[in-house]
Computed example of a mutant assay.
Amino acid sequence: MHAPIRSVAVAVLAAAALCSGCTAPPDTPAAPPPVAEPAVSAEATTQGAVSSAPAAPIVLLDPGHNGGNGANPAALRRQVPDGRGGTKSCNTTGSATNAGYPEHAFTWDLTQRVRTRLEAAGVRVVLTRQDDDGVGPCVDERGAAGGRAGAVAAVSLHADGSGPSARGFHVAHADPPVHGTGPESLRLATALRDGLRSGRFATADYIGQDGLDARDDLAGLNLATVPTALVEAGNMRNADDAAVLTSAEGRDRYAEAISAGVLAYLGR
């Protein structure tokens, strides 16, 4: 049992002796250590995701008139540019129902309802006024507000004050356009018209055509540099329209229809 072990040992010693004069091969360089990937925190990952997401579209809402206008006639009479080379009064008090419900209160309430729905759909909303007890702003400021806010669209909210037999809504847009927004303003007006129709509101039987009203005399439309339309939700002097305009349920219906029109225009 010991003989084979001794033979192996002798063979190994002999091989070592034969190579005693050999030159040793150069040392093989060690492999470089692996490079560690930089650590990415959960916070950084989240921030990266947020920064790469598309920004929310901005929509300007313009609640017509203001609660303090009636007490400040001199301020309202001040002349401002009308967008077509002339001037017109800064603003007006707006209309009211026969029972005294004012247009400025209606537009302010409606704007809040529309704003809530648009924000829930991921739209950023900017307003031309922040309360219902101030004066103005003037129509030229309202017209320029959408461009200053970087809005993709602007919607001015109103209710009309025509004769008592006139009924229905209409949506105004600038025609001829002043700042090259004509086709898109018409598309916005049409989307709003379609939204109101889908909400079971009747188009006006006394103004415009098929619910659309091409206008050249509204400074807020003439001075707009973004697609802009003006909704006259109904006639406050008409008893049937007034019943809807003055009820919370009716204003919810208007808000749902107008929001649907805006979102359809935005492709959302």
Score class of each variant (00 low, 15 high):
G100K: 07
P102A: 02
H104C: 13
A105R: 14
F106Q: 05
T107Q: 05
D109G: 00
L110D: 07
L110K: 07
Q112E: 08
T116R: 15
R117Q: 15
V123R: 04
V125A: 02
V125P: 03
V126I: 11
Q130H: 09
D132A: 09
D133I: 14
V135I: 15
D140N: 15
E141G: 13
R142V: 15
G143D: 01
A145P: 13
A145V: 13
A151P: 10
V152S: 14
V152E: 11
A154I: 04
V155P: 06
L157S: 02
H158A: 03
H158W: 05
A159Y: 00
R167G: 06
F169E: 11
F169L: 12
F169R: 11
A172S: 12
H173D: 07
H173V: 05
A174V: 00
V178R: 13
G180I: 08
T181H: 03
S185T: 04
A189Q: 01
A189N: 01
L192R: 14
F201C: 03
F201H: 12
A202D: 14
D205A: 06
Y206R: 04
D210L: 12
G211R: 11
G211H: 12
A219N: 02
L221R: 01
N222T: 02
N222G: 03
T225S: 11
V226D: 04
A229Q: 00
L230S: 07
A233T: 13
N235F: 08
M236N: 06
A239M: 00
A239L: 06
D240C: 05
D240R: 14
D241N: 13
A242R: 00
A243L: 04
L245D: 07
T246Y: 07
